[in-house]
Design a protein around this nucleic acid. Structure first.
Lengths: 111, 111
DNA sequence: CACATATATCAATGATTCTTGATCAATAAA
DNA sequence: TTTATTGATCAAGAATCATTGATATATGTG
């Protein structure tokens, strides 16, 4: 489960990295993020735009929130969600980590 | 299922993006990638390093390969796997896409 | 050819995830 | 205080995913 987002903490934590990627591993959640990147948005608005049932949307918002991808804010009876910039930075860092230290492995002789 | 990796094709395809992220949403697969980023590697070597059973490793390699994250090459009886640079570029592009067009949504009035 | 090795695939099982509809909690308005 | 609205949570079922052990498919060697 998501605890906090901090620069540099993720690369050596496959479980946390997997959680973050899992949050992104669903078309509905990607569509939610696609909406949220335009700015903060309430659930009812997302329901309209994504043609998704309320509990289904709520489920996916929870996954995204638990992973730290989005944050919420209550205003009256509305919940407003928005993308968490820190998580985007964390994602960047993770993707960068895949590219590091590509040194030559010994050329021949397996196992 | 994965078909091909091409710059620019993914951002508007949530199903493809989800497949790519799903491939990364597992600690074992992240550990595989962590090994592969050091260079091409055969399955038996991964089995040793990751302390994972052969069929389990084979399963995860297939998921990564189907998603286009890695490529394979046969040499004699060994299969060598390595990271697919094009997929890394695609990932970069996807993460970038989360940051685009953060224009202000209308300030008040929900639904 | 017979045998060994490396790896893929298959089948069964258990675990996790997603969807749906129902209910609950909080807030606001009449 | 009753009623409406927004959204979270819960329970059940379906779908997907991961693990394991067994078997199949190369490929190479004697």
């Amino acid at each position: 489960m998501y605890i906090f987002v901090m620069k540099g903490i993720t690369v050596r934590h496959p479980a946390r990295a997997a959680e973050l990627f899992h949050a992104l591993a669903d078309p509905t959640r990607l569509e939610i993020l696609d909406e949220l990147k335009e700015g903060e948005c309430c659930v009812c608005e997302l329901t309209d735009r994504l043609q998704a049932g309320q509990s289904r949307l709520s489920f996916h918002l929870k996954v995204l929130k638990d992973a730290g991808m989005i944050v919420d804010r209550r205003e009256g009876r509305w919940m407003y969600y928005s993308v968490n910039a820190a998580a985007l930075a964390e994602l960047d860092e993770l993707v960068e980590s895949f590219k590091q230290t590509k040194r030559a492995r010994r050329a021949s002789g397996c196992c």
